[in-house]
Structures are given as structure tokens and as C-alpha cells.
Design a protein around this nucleic acid. Structure first.
Lengths: 288, 288
DNA sequence: CTATATCGTTTAATTAATTTAAACGATGGA
DNA sequence: TCCATCGTTTAAATTAATTAAACGATATAG
């Protein structure tokens, strides 16, 4: 028969702090009769005594000591988890985005939002793909793409065309051999299986290309940038890498760009009722 | 406001195993209304949703997942501790003794007791000193000494005289220099501060000795035997070390022995009402 | 496109559990 | 010896949980 008196057990933890049931009752705003009943019931279902009854109060039995230790710990764990989850849901707004976007675009602007909305607990949740959204409590995601997502609300944040980037070696190879020849030898770094960005770019630039299998999928944009720097391949990147361009680390390999790509706010229809969500959307649109 | 709905939370853990409240209700022998109420109440006190209500059942929310994980763990810890403590008290008999006595004397004989009393869960609890008894649930302790303990019931198990033992070097030193001279240089290994065994022995053998400060206190008899083997000193040991004597590892340094020492059962008056305790005492007396 | 089955929720009544107040027995100290 | 102070017990009062039934929502079958 399974144990189910967890509320009584929680009372036991409280009562054990005192040296007598009377003391405990007074502090807990209950009568000593009530607490005596609780302990009695608990001891009966457990099958062993928790307290030794003395003339002037109670003391824990050895088993009581053991159980107290365990129960105290376990209850504390649950209580702190609840506290944490409560905190998250109290006036919280969680925005999912890549660490790339967070560090290169949002971070510098975020202080202003937090200052004008000090009551909103903002959380930035790093995500890689769309499926992360349902696993966590994320109200809004910020995604790069061409705005084609289904069953969700999509708001364009700003255009951010993408163009092929490579390191110095890649750049020089393009200069030497020309675009088509050089690209035939490059490994194409992609963000996912399904992304059609490279295909779109090839179509736009007017170069024929077969199905390429020597592509490397690197979902995280920061990692992808680093891979390009390390010469592992070429990737489609956007204006947010301007720092690396200016520093001469990264090079633009072609003038042709995917101009209809950009950053979008993606959120479900239902969260539009959340005033925090709308406050954030209204604010971020002024930043685009 | 502190969380106190641990019984509801425990229900939540049960319910989360199923895909619908109806399923859970049927398996738990409750109505779906009851479980719906529990979950509703729990969610209200928590301040966030645990389940997402679908048309054909329920699924955990992200916060529900998190809380479930934690609660499952913590409850399991408590439940397993309770199971353990219950097992101890169900027909359990715990005997405290040194590992020395347990391995050298009791172990070989114990099988018989367990065969004739298969319903008694016997536990051997290793102890070093008297104070261990009150910390744990020990009904009987087996101690070596001269039977002089107060406020407890004492029953002599068997006489087991003690005499000085040393390793081969010590033995040869006694042969060469004589008892008094050799002992003046030995470190005396003792079991505790308070033990007067060495003083008693010196008195009995008729050798004068001042207060010796170069004594080493090693409470555990097994460790003490090892210390003697390693030549760290000489110790008073009893017949239970006959193996080492026969193997030529340990040597008896004197014929003079503390003949009134032996092994005793020590227990409190109240445990005499416990039939398991009496069964053990009756049995072990036949083994003495 | 409608009928139906299957969810969870809600309501009000029933049932069960907890709490209380007061009396009680035990015990140690004044 | 009396008294104060424990925890326990009892029965009544109070509070809480459970039930049964009706309900609204929604996907599926026909």
C-alpha cells in the first residue's frame, strides 16, 4: 500500500522544528489537538513512531530523524522548483532567438526596453530551430528567413539580405578563378536540411548547380561564422557580420544577394492577448 | 505564501502518467470530476498551468514537464526512504557489535539463527562505542569488557580473557629483555580513553608502571589487530585472534591474562518485551 | 454536413476528513 | 501535595473532497 500522506509529512517537518506540539500549534495557528491527530495518523500509516513523547515535549526518534532529513530535503527541492516556475510565469516574457542575433543585434538595444518596461521580466532563450518553441515557454521567436512560415503570426522586423561569405582564401579563389569555378569547389555551409537559401541564391545569380551533397549543416549561426573563418566552407550571411567584414576577416564573395530575406517575429495567435508580448512587439518594430 | 498541496502534487504525478483525466480516473478508482478538481486547485495555487487541455485528453505544459520531473524524483526519494524505514521496523532486530566480533565469532554461527527464525529480519550494525546505541535503532549490543555497565541489562555471553599480544619483533624483544624492560618501550594500544584494561593487567602481573602517555587509542578492534601486526605497538587481545596466533603472525607476550573479561549482551530493560530480542538472547546463550 | 462519441469542466448534493474545544491522564517541579 | 504543562482523546462542529449528472467543445464516422 503506497504512502500518500504527503501533507501530513510536510506538517511533520514543520512540527519537528519545535520541541513540543503545543509550541508548534501556537506558531502554526492550529490547536495542539489538530497536530496531535496529524502526527498520530502519520505514524499509523508509516508503521513506526516519529516522536518520542516526553513529559515536557517531544523529541525525534532515530527513524524520525532519518525521515525528517530526507523529507526536508525533498520538500525543499520541490518548493524551490515551484518558486522558480512561479517566477518565470509572473509577468515574464520569453523571446527565443539565436545567440547570434541576440549578441549582434538585440543586446545593444535591449537596455532601452528594459528601462521603459521595468515590470516585465524578460528572458532570452537561445534556440536553434522551430521545434524548440513548443518545448519551452517561449512567447515570441525571432527568425531569419523569407517570412514563409505556416500556422503562425509573422511580422517582418527588418530586411537583412544574405550573400555568400568566405574567408580570405575563399575570396582570393573567387578573384582568381571566377565565381562559378570557385563555388564548385567550396563546401556550402547550411543552417538546416530544409533551407532552400542556397538554391534560391544559385537561381538568382544564374549559375547552374546540381544537387550538392558536400554541404555541412551547422544550425548555430555563430558556429557557422566561425566555420567560415576557419575555412571550412562558405555560408550565406547577413549584414550582422559587418564587424568581421570591416576587420578583414570575412569577405563578401558576390554582389548578388537574397534581398527578400530578413528577420521576422514569429508568434502564435493566442499570445497576442498578452500585453507583455504586444509591448515587446511594438517596441522592437521601432528598432527595425 | 508557502506551497502546501503536496497530496495534490502527488496526484499530479500519478495523473501525468496517463493521456487523459478519464483514463487516470478509471485506473485510480476515482471520478474524473475529482481529479479535475485536484488539478484545478493545484494549478490555482501554483499560478500556472500544468496540463494543456486537448480535445481527446491532456498533455503536459513545459512547466508541467519541469515540475513533474522534480516532483517525481523528490517523492520517489521520500517513498524509498519510508520503505526502508518500514522494513527496518517490521519484525526487525538490530544487533550492534564491532566488526571484529561480527566477523570472528558471530558470522559463522549466524546462519543457524536465521534458519530457525526465518521471519526475523536481522541486521548487524557496526558500532564502536556505547553512544552509538541511542543514535540508531539498536535493540542489543554485544560488548567486550568486565560486565560493569550501569542503567542497562547485562548478560554474560562467554568469558574471553585478554592478554598482551605483539608481532614477532615484540615477542623476540620480550624473550631477550624480559617482560618489564620490553614493555617499558612498547606503545600500548588501547580501545578508549576510559578503558582500565591495561592498568588492570599491570596490576595483575605485578609490574609497576607509571602513567603512560605514549598510548595510541584505536577503537576498532580489527584496526587494532592490524596495528599490532604492523608493529605499531602491543595490545590486549582475546581468544578471537587465535587465527593470527596459529599462523605465527601474532604472539602471546605473557601468560598473565585478564580472566574476568568477556563478551556481554547489553540491552535496555524495555526491549525485553520484544519477542525477537528474547529469541536472539536465548539462542546466542546456547552458543557461548 | 450532421450525428455521435469522447474529452474536461462545472454544479450542487453527498460524503468524508479535519479541526476544534474541552476534558483527561501523566509527570515533574515548587 | 498541589499545580503547571505536556500530549491524547472524545465528540461536535466545521471544512474539504468526492460524486453524479449535466454541459460545452471538438474531432471522427457515416
Amino acid at each position: 500500500m503506497a504512502f500518500r500522506n504527503f501533507d501530513d509529512l510536510r506538517s511533520f517537518v514543520d512540527i519537528a522544528q519545535f520541541n513540543s506540539i503545543s509550541d508548534a500549534a501556537e506558531k502554526m495557528n492550529l490547536t495542539k489537538g489538530a497536530l496531535s491527530h496529524r502526527i498520530k495518523r502519520l505514524e499509523e500509516t508509516l508503521g513506526f513512531m516519529l516522536f518520542k513523547r516526553n513529559v515536557r515535549g517531544i523529541t525525534l526518534t532515530p527513524k524520525g530523524e532519518d525521515l525528517l532529513m530526507q523529507a526536508k530535503n525533498s520538500f525543499a527541492q520541490i518548493e524551490s522548483q515551484i518558486f522558480h516556475l512561479k517566477e518565470i510565469s509572473d509577468n515574464a516574457l520569453t523571446i527565443g532567438m539565436s545567440t547570434y542575433f541576440a549578441s549582434r543585434w538585440l543586446s545593444p538595444r535591449l537596455m532601452e526596453f528594459m528601462n521603459t518596461n521595468p515590470n516585465i521580466r524578460l528572458r532570452i532563450e537561445p534556440i536553434l530551430d522551430m521545434s524548440d518553441k513548443i518545448e519551452k515557454d517561449i512567447q515570441i521567436t525571432i527568425r531569419w528567413g523569407n517570412g514563409q512560415w505556416r500556422n503562425v503570426e509573422v511580422t517582418k522586423l527588418f530586411s537583412c539580405p544574405a550573400w555568400p561569405t568566405g574567408n580570405k582564401d575563399a575570396y582570393e579563389k573567387v578573384q582568381r578563378e571566377g565565381l562559378e569555378s570557385a563555388f564548385a569547389k567550396f563546401t556550402l555551409l547550411r543552417d538546416s536540411d530544409k533551407s532552400s537559401a542556397w538554391t534560391n541564391w544559385y537561381n538568382k545569380v544564374g549559375v547552374q548547380h546540381g544537387t550538392r551533397y558536400d554541404t555541412l549543416i551547422i544550425p548555430d549561426p555563430n558556429v557557422r561564422v566561425q566555420a567560415v573563418l576557419d575555412g571550412q566552407g562558405v555560408a550565406l550571411n547577413d549584414d550582422l557580420i559587418s564587424n568581421e567584414i570591416e576587420a578583414g576577416q570575412l569577405f563578401r564573395l558576390s554582389d548578388c544577394e537574397l534581398s527578400d530575406y530578413g528577420y521576422f517575429l514569429v508568434y502564435s495567435e493566442e499570445v497576442q492577448n498578452d500585453p507583455n508580448v504586444m509591448a515587446f512587439i511594438d517596441w522592437i518594430k521601432t528598432q527595425g
